[in-house]
């Protein structure tokens, strides 16, 4: 049996290495799925919430969008105003009790993280949309584009670029917060660690390893996102086509 701290760490790393990796994999899977689905939910909610309601719109349309706004506000407030650990319990056990749904913990986990992230993303996306100059929206409208076309082709691409840091932030938060899903026995990193530690009653050593793994995950993700952000900022130069005398010539233009 190992005696010192380092021996224990090595022991667990060796014996439970695959176990930890599986946990980390599950954590990453839930976090990525939840972030991407949450982003999709958030974008849809934000776009629908920004559909303008005009005084002279037909009544059914007005009622429809007013009701939708209410539902979305309720959704956002409820999911941002309660802890995800409690949401997990309510949704997992509630769905079985009320509707006899037999969700696997993993299915429940994917659902919970997505819907929870969606509520945050909806607010992030709304912020991104309203931060875009009103002139962009009006210009698109002035050539006849519909609200959806304007959002899809003009506003969202610009908003997404602006909210990319916040999206990355949500991803990192999700990597960490999936740990609460251990309460519904999802075999993510925290759950795996707990069972490994429990077998030998060595909590400090195991969770030291867990801590390092979480950090490596979040740190790598942060770096990758920074890189993507830089890429998305795009090139600062462009090519000028055809001079007066040599039509096929190209001139490099720079940013002003």
């Amino acid at each position: 049996m190992p005696t010192t701290f380092f021996e224990w760490v090595l022991f667990f790393a060796d014996k439970y290495g695959l176990y930890f990796l599986q946990g980390a994999g599950t954590t990453l899977l839930i976090a990525s799925f939840g972030t991407i689905t949450g982003l999709a939910i958030g974008l849809v909610v934000a776009v629908l919430r920004t559909v303008p309601i005009e005084a002279n719109d037909p009544a059914p349309r007005k009622i429809f969008y007013t009701v939708i706004r209410w539902i979305f506000v309720a959704y956002i407030e409820i999911f941002r105003g309660t802890p995800m650990i409690v949401q997990s319990m309510v949704i997992y056990y509630g769905s079985a009790e009320l509707w006899g749904l037999d969700m696997s913990p993993m299915t429940a986990a994917l659902f919970i993280v997505s819907i929870n992230t969606g509520a945050y993303m909806a607010e992030i996306a709304r912020g991104g949309i309203i931060s875009i100059d009103k002139g962009q929206y009006e210009a698109a409208q002035s050539i006849g584009m519909t609200h959806t076309q304007t959002m899809l082709h003009i506003i969202l691409p610009q908003a997404l670029r602006n909210i990319l840091p916040s999206i990355g932030n949500e991803f990192v938060v999700n990597i960490k917060d999936t740990s609460v899903l251990n309460v519904i026995s999802v075999t993510e990193l925290f759950f795996m660690s707990k069972s490994a530690a429990g077998t030998y009653m060595r909590y400090f050593e195991v969770f030291f390893i867990t801590c390092v793994i979480y950090f490596v995950l979040t740190f790598s993700v942060t770096r990758i996102l920074l890189f993507i952000e830089k890429k998305m900022r795009g090139s600062e130069s462009f090519v000028i086509h055809g001079s007066q005398t040599v039509p096929h010539a190209v001139i490099k233009g720079g940013a002003r």
């Binding site: 100059d133 002139g135 962009q136 009006e138 210009a139 698109a140 409208q141 002035s142 050539i143 006849g144 584009m145 082709h153 003009i154 691409p157 610009q158 670029r161 462009f238």
Partner: peptide, 28 residues
Amino acid sequence: AYRAKVGMVFQNFNLFNNLSVLQNCVVG
């Protein structure tokens, strides 16, 4: 359809910032 027929030019240009010069004139 009406707005396509009655275009508008703004004081602050309002070019689509995410699109190139060509795409600005293509998207509509």
